[in-house]
């Protein structure tokens, strides 16, 4: 259920796009540095968003090479507290999601998940030791979510609440209580949107395999087809959460990444929701954000 939080690249300034890509690459390098090569494969846009949200001050940039751009390297964000935190969080979340898939599927079907989990075991132990509070929150919320899935929870909100509160647990250590509240609300609704959009996206697949799907059980579906009225109901839930997310964002102190964050919240995510609802959203395997030509460190600009 990753990769739903992304910017609308066409609406970003070139400068903001370059910064966003530098942050994406920075997170990838951070994962490699702290948790080893295998951990770099769990990189996704959602945690880039989180890193930008939790960032304090301005980033430092440096040029680094990697397997994707071996020749002259790329301008990436140097290690920072926000990147360290998000790298740890993404390892923890990925590990518990894999545990979930291992438990859900049969011995052979889960072989891939088992292997991946094994590869992430050491990184996970390291991350959990560093961020015990987030680890605890993820573990307890996913266990509760599992419980709801077993009983076939019919309330979409109740099921979404678990994943949403899991994500809002990432809001901590804000300088002021007000900012913390706003951030928690923003992340809560981001989590809700991801959960509902993912359920909508997986509806057909889940029903074919007889898995629990919150939207199917909300409407008591027999076939993976929603009536216009049911679709409207889902749209309304997404729309309200988008609004609550944006309203919380406006109350947070602005930071270095505000331009890209506003793009994600006000354009990227509404666009994603529309695409999911009309069935044109493709959760493709993401590479680094692409743009023709190179963006130099000067173009990223640090005058702000």
């Amino acid at each position: 259920m990753f990769g739903y939080i992304r910017p609308e690249a066409g609406e970003l300034k070139v400068k903001e796009f370059g910064r966003f890509r530098a942050c994406y690459c920075g997170l990838c390098h951070e994962l490699g540095r702290s948790y080893g090569f295998a951990a770099r494969f769990i990189l996704n846009y959602d945690f880039v968003f989180l890193a930008m949200l939790l960032w304090r001050g301005a980033p430092r940039y440096e040029t680094r090479r990697c397997a994707v751009s071996p020749a002259c390297g790329r301008c990436v964000c140097a290690s920072s507290p926000a990147l360290e935190r998000c790298a740890g969080y993404s390892v923890i979340l990925a590990y518990w999601k894999l545990c979930d898939s291992v438990a859900d599927e049969g011995l052979f079907a889960s072989l891939g998940a088992r292997l991946k989990r094994f590869a992430l075991l050491r990184p996970y132990r390291k991350a959990a030791a560093r961020w015990p509070r987030f680890d605890e929150a993820v573990k307890s919320k996913l266990t509760e979510l599992n419980g709801l899935e077993k009983t076939g929870e019919t309330s979409l909100d109740r099921a979404a609440d678990k994943f949403a509160s899991l994500l809002s647990a990432a809001a901590e250590d804000e300088p002021s209580a007000d900012a913390q509240r706003a951030e928690a609300q923003l992340l809560y609704h981001a989590g809700r949107i991801i959960y509902i959009a993912d359920a909508y996206q997986d509806l057909g697949e889940d029903m074919k395999r007889g898995r629990y799907n919150p939207i199917a059980s909300r409407f008591g579906l027999r076939a993976p087809e929603l009536s216009a009225e049911e679709r409207e109901t889902v749209r309304l839930s997404l729309e309200n959460s988008l609004g609550l997310m944006a309203s919380a964002f406006e109350l947070m102190p602005s930071n270095y990444w505000s331009g890209a964050l506003r793009n994600i919240i006000c354009v990227g995510m509404p666009g994603m929701c529309r695409q999911v609802l009309c069935g044109t959203f493709e959760n493709r395997r993401e590479g680094a954000p692409r743009l023709r030509g190179r963006i130099s460190a000067q173009q990223i600009g640090d005058e702000e």
Binding site: E8, E11, S247, R262
Partner: peptide, 18 residues
């Protein structure tokens, strides 16, 4: 009020992309 959809996030300088 609920059916109206809450906070008007679109009025923030960006037009809807589509």
């Amino acid at each position: 009020y609920l059916n109206m959809g809450g906070y008007p996030y679109r009025d923030s300088g960006y037009g809807p992309p589509d």
